[in-house]
Design a protein around this nucleic acid. Structure first.
Lengths: 333, 333
DNA sequence: CTGTTAGCGCCTTCAA
DNA sequence: TTGAAGGCGCTAACAG
């Protein structure tokens, strides 16, 4: 026996407003306004009366498409991803999309697994945020994305990668190079790099940028510490720092902030003894003590552009957003 | 002419594996395993071969339901919401749900609008995170949620509210009271409250809790400043603080951290001159300078419980999670 | 401009 | 167990 509380269907709507199914469909959803005004009114009134809401799933199967955007994020708790996600959300909603968000927890098996689930929903847009590992075989990932692509989805990877899909990212290498140059210009000579995970392509791009900036001044890093991309990675890396070092460049702000805490606990003064800088300019970089020098990325814009690029659906697109060095007290500026 | 790249359908699968549509359907999705092993193998093999992925929309219309959870958040950029969202995501994915996330930007018209869109997708779970305004008429909101409910969704509101749906929240009042008591016990007498928005019920509950804690010791707040719930709210509120005050209680950590920055800029020492405390124990509370005293809430658990409660579908449920005062250096502990 | 009528991809009785 | 057939809610020709 049918659920008496099942939502009203288009059929109910048509009956209630005394028009045909097709007419009701047209006024509720006809992009063309080829329905007499009188009918339109009646249908809308009836819809309001019975609380009609079109069944998107049914529309999706009839039309063969729906406005769903799927977002894959490593860790929504990281301010970087949160900010990008905010941009994605805003842009996607503005285009009438509902966005699904899944957390991969930085595990590529999760990623593949989630994409498999997502594929069932036939999303029109698929955004993968979070840099891909540099080495790890991405075969399964690419396979899922390719299937999605074939089903008509616009795919975009935010960050560095080697996959055959569009990408949007910030100018990591250039920004890192600039920042390093600024640090050197302020008189620091013995710099250490908190390089993050060696397999994360974004981390690598930034660390390489730092190196390039140093090389421009004829310098080399005194120390390169690898570790996790999060707060803890910065914290423990800073525990290894010897006092022969006078500047510490971290591949992201979260790590830099962790490092600041470790240095403070060790009684090492910032910036007088060692300068510290990060990357991203997340919201609380300015609340750090001392306020953190960093490379500003318009994170929300990054998300918005990702949506635009996915919407365009050209796999060849590579969009690189400009970045901007921000010097604050943590480097003595 | 049909899209040649349209994803394979169940029909294709059946043909490819030489069984009937019904059989293919059963092996792909039959909860009952009433299909001969040989057939199962063939169907699975064929599915792998042609890259079959069931069309969830079609399943949804045929079955009348699907595993979609809808999440509404005020601001994903706020560490509080980000952490709760992480919990929701984990729990929902574990139950096989895909979760949609929408950002309301703290505007109730957005909220209603988004719920209208969401309703079309017939989600099984609807989670609204972020405390509702205390006064604002919630008629339209309640109406949308009621429709969703009638369509079979499990609804849960995270935080304080007066809506007729299940809720999950932290023990705000009790936690605030405890924290205030601890501050008083450490010798502070002249305390100010950074109360956040006067219409936000969570903010109100916490501010009232602070007052109760003070009252227990026969005290009253010297100052109560209202302002926005974010970092800026704390920052500008702290600009108003006179030096007759020796403790500042903020209704959340983000505000407390903003206040710390303002106090530092004004040259007011923490905690020697004024103690500062927050609420939530967000991840970077320990990176604040000095490390922030606060009330710890297991934010991710909050999200996980929300999913569980929504799944249970009992509108009467009210779940209150325990909280735990954490005293750090910002209050001289 | 409106209504009739096939589908869309899938599930699920109902017989065989 | 398996298959044929009707139906889920909606859209899109196609006539009228």
């Amino acid at each position: 026996m049918p659920n008496p509380d099942a939502p009203p269907t288009l059929y109910d709507l048509a009956r209630e407003s005394g028009v045909s199914l097709a007419t009701a469909s047209r006024v509720i959803n006809g992009s063309e306004r080829r329905v007499a005004e009188a009918y339109r009114q009646r249908v809308f009134a009836a819809a309001e009366r019975i609380g009609y809401s079109a069944n998107v799933s049914a529309q999706a199967v009839a039309r063969g498409t729906s406005r769903l955007a799927a977002l894959l994020v490593s860790d929504i708790t990281d301010p970087f991803f949160a900010a990008v996600t905010a941009g994605v959300s805003r842009a996607a909603e503005a285009e009438g999309f509902l966005v699904t968000m899944s957390v991969t927890d930085r595990r590529s098996d999760r990623e593949v697994e989630l994409l498999r689930v997502i594929r069932g929903f036939r999303p029109r847009l698929v955004l993968v945020i979070g840099s891909r590992p540099v080495d790890e075989p991405t075969f399964e990932l690419e396979k899922q994305l390719t299937e999605l692509r074939r089903a008509g989805a616009g795919i975009v990877i935010v960050g560095h990668h080697r996959l055959p899909f569009a990408s949007v990212r910030a100018g990591d290498a250039a920004g890192a190079r600039d920042l390093a140059a600024a640090i050197v210009a302020s008189g620091r000579q013995r710099v250490g790099i908190l390089a993050g995970p060696a397999e994360l392509s974004t981390a690598v791009a930034r660390a390489d940028g730092f190196r390039a900036g140093l090389a421009d001044a004829g310098l080399e890093p005194i120390l390169v510490v690898h570790g996790e991309f999060g707060r803890g990675g910065g914290y423990s890396a800073a525990l290894d720092v010897t006092d022969s070092i006078d500047a510490l460049l971290a591949v992201n702000d979260v790590m830099a902030i962790g490092a600041l805490t470790a240095l403070r606990e060790r009684g090492i003064a910032v910036p007088s003894h060692v300068a510290v800088a990060g990357f991203d300019d997340i919201a609380n970089a300015q609340d750090a003590v001392p306020p953190l020098s960093t490379v500003r990325i318009d994170l929300e814009l990054l998300g918005e552009r990702a949506v635009a690029v996915a919407l365009a659906g050209n796999d060849e697109t590579v969009e690189v957003l400009p970045v901007h060095t921000v010097l604050r007290a943590s480097t003595g500026h």
